[in-house]
Design a protein around this nucleic acid. Structure first.
Length: 565
RNA sequence: CGGGGCGUGGCGCAGCCUGGUAGCGCGCUUGCCUUGGGCGCAAGAGGUCCGCGGUUCGAAUCCGCGCGCCCCGACCA
């Protein structure tokens, strides 16, 4: 490709609307342009890079025996009502009516459609296992699209679905995907961490996320040196022990006028937050319950949901809490309550002489001991924090921000039962299909690669996913000898199937170098006057900015060698 | 959905408070010049000032109602 003919609209200045590096650089480098919030046009460079990413995904999916499909995004709403996700996924689904007043949706993923095909066609265990995948557009009406290609409303996903006769079969399909995903992200040159994750509205029992640590991410993950890693929603850890005050004194009220939050109380009493009990009131099925946490801990609603076995709960209103406990938020506590279910985080088990609200405005209690002064049920309910001890090895956990690139789920029988997708087993009994589903966000791979590989001058994408292998730059196109040498090299590179972008523009060298640095191509070969006269060209490696002088006739072989070809 | 910010040639911004000529830098076009890190000189083109309504002799500017975009939070495989 000749740059003079290419549409690569680079920008000299940072676009005002872009904050995270990948968004800023993809705009500046002319990869993308915005159409609406969370909706982007892929221009020439983005499309080339994304096609390379999809090529890698396709190869690895094919390699585990998955079969490529292509399903429509446009779906009848009936399918989604049948699975229950029409309401469960709620406002994130784009919904509308066609001209005949038929309710339609745009797919957020394709469990329904795939299951629908499976139930119509799969009849016997002899046809199993099956693995079906596609690379296709997903539509989600996200509450807050953001950060360029990191959180989109329309995006490409590789989604695959496995159908097995039993749990052992699902395990095998799951592991095939697990391994394929590792190869995909390895080949894409992404630094990633595999974490245990929560399945959320997908349903199912078991899942792993493939996440790329970068500051622009939105997922928090807990990581330990021993290899344990989990999404913070799901991560478990042991809080370092806290020294309590000795003694068996009875609870004793003390005045705390105007002290509403734990922070207030910490300042007011001079005590550490870890010696306090935080009291939350939640409403589950119209029933109020108390949730107790250590003062410096945070409730994980994810863990609460799995503890309660439902996500149909909400924090109480201040009025409800007042009616239940007789005090306003800020002075609530568990002591002396009757007939209210009390859930406490495990970090409170065995503690003594703590501080909590007295259920009287402006008053707290000291010397409160769980188990003696109230009787809770203990569960793991809190979000782990950095410094908590790893459940597996006891070392301190680190917390890191990352981008979710892929997620694999053991769905089990959730969809097959809801949608009556079953086959006959070897005993002639009808059994529901055991399913898995597996997703990769294609644009997120590109974004994460930029987040992980950029500097002040631009990006440097991993070779496997860069839009070109090499940029060939003639320092001065008006110099006939340089131009001819560059043209000759261009032909030579193309003959060897190098993806080359020939910068044949009539620009000054500075402009060409700046643009080349920006757009993320791993190598630049420059033909400049001084070295040309010595029979040399230079190969510039973008990631390290190292320059290597090479004889003109061995430029191509050097590049092929660097590529490992 | 709550909080904050922004909306003015393609891009980045000033002007708005205190109403009256729409301006700067970059980019773009043409010519000359220059050619290893976003050259220089000269001449040009390009704007419903987000929309609608109101106030006013007169609105980019003041008022009202919308819309859009970004950020934080809520939310979210």
């Amino acid at each position: 490709m000749r740059w003079s003919q290419a549409f690569i609209p680079t920008l000299r200045e940072d676009p005002a609307e872009a904050e995270v590096p990948s968004h800023r650089l993809l705009l500046r480098a002319g990869y993308i342009r915005q159409v609406a919030a969370g909706v982007y046009a892929h221009l020439f460079l983005a499309q080339r890079s994304l096609l390379k990413i999809m090529g890698i995904i396709r190869q690895e999916m094919d390699a585990i025996g998955a079969q490529e499909f292509y399903l429509p995004a446009l779906n009848p709403a009936e399918l989604w009502k049948e699975s229950g996700r029409y309401t469960a996924y709620g406002p994130a689904i784009f919904k509308f009516k066609d001209r005949n007043d038929h309710e339609m949706v745009l797919g957020v993923t394709h469990e329904e459609e795939m299951t629908n095909i499976a139930r119509g066609e799969l009849r016997s265990y002899k046809q199993l296992p099956q693995m079906w995948y596609q690379i296709q557009e997903k539509f989600r009406d996200e509450p807050r699209p953001k950060s360029g290609l990191l959180r989109l409303r329309q995006f490409w996903m590789k989604d695959s679905y496995s159908f097995d006769i039993d749990d052992a079969g699902l395990d095998a399909s799951y592991h095939k995907h697990y391994d394929a995903y590792r190869r995909i992200f390895d080949r894409c040159g992404i630094k990633y961490v595999i974490v245990e994750a929560y399945s959320g509205t997908m349903g199912g029992t078991h899942s792993h996320e493939f996440t790329a640590p970068t500051d622009a991410g939105e997922d928090l993950i807990a990581i330990c040196d021993c290899g344990y890693a989990a999404n913070l929603e799901k991560a478990e850890g042991n809080a370092p022990p806290v020294e309590d005050i000795a003694g068996d004194a009875a609870p004793e009220p003390f005045a705390t006028p105007g002290q509403k939050t734990i922070d207030d109380l910490v300042k007011f009493t001079g005590e550490n937050g870890n010696r306090m009990i935080k009291t939350l009131v939640y409403v589950v099925d119209a029933q109020a319950i108390l949730i107790l946490l250590r003062g410096d801990h945070t409730l994980s609603e994810t863990k609460l949901a799995s503890t309660l076995g439902t996500d149909a709960f909400r924090p109480s209103t201040p009025e409800e809490a007042l009616a239940l406990l007789g005090a306003h938020l800020g002075s609530l506590g568990p002591v002396g309550l009757k007939g209210v279910r009390i859930l406490a985080d495990k970090a409170l088990e065995g503690r003594r002489n703590m501080i909590t609200g007295a259920n009287q405005d402006g008053t707290h209690l000291r010397n409160v001991t769980p188990g003696r002064d109230f009787t809770p049920e203990y569960f793991d309910l809190r979000v782990v924090s950095a410094g908590d001890h790893c459940k597996k090895c006891g070392k301190p956990l680190r917390v890191s921000v990352s981008v979710e690139l892929g997620h694999i789920f053991k769905l089990g029988r959730r969809y097959s039962q809801a949608m009556h997708a079953s086959v006959l087993d070897e005993n002639g009994r009808e059994v529901p299909l055991v399913m898995g589903s597996y997703g990769i966000g294609v644009e997120r791979i590109l974004s994460a690669a930029v987040e992980q590989n950029h500097d002040r001058d631009g990006m440097f994408l991993p070779a496997a996913i860069a839009p070109f292998d090499v940029i060939l730059t003639a320092a001065n196109m008006d110099d006939a000898r340089l131009r001819e040498a560059a043209e000759k090299l261009y032909e030579e590179m193309r003959a060897k199937s190098l993806d080359v972008l020939f910068d044949d523009r009539a620009e000054r060298p500075g402009v060409k170098f700046k643009d080349a640095d920006l757009i993320g191509v791993p190598y630049r070969v420059t033909i400049g006057k001084r070295k040309f006269e010595q029979g040399l060209a230079e190969i510039f490696r973008r990631s390290t900015k190292q320059i290597q002088d090479v004889k003109l006739e061995s430029v191509v072989s050097s590049l092929l060698e660097m590529q490992g070809r």
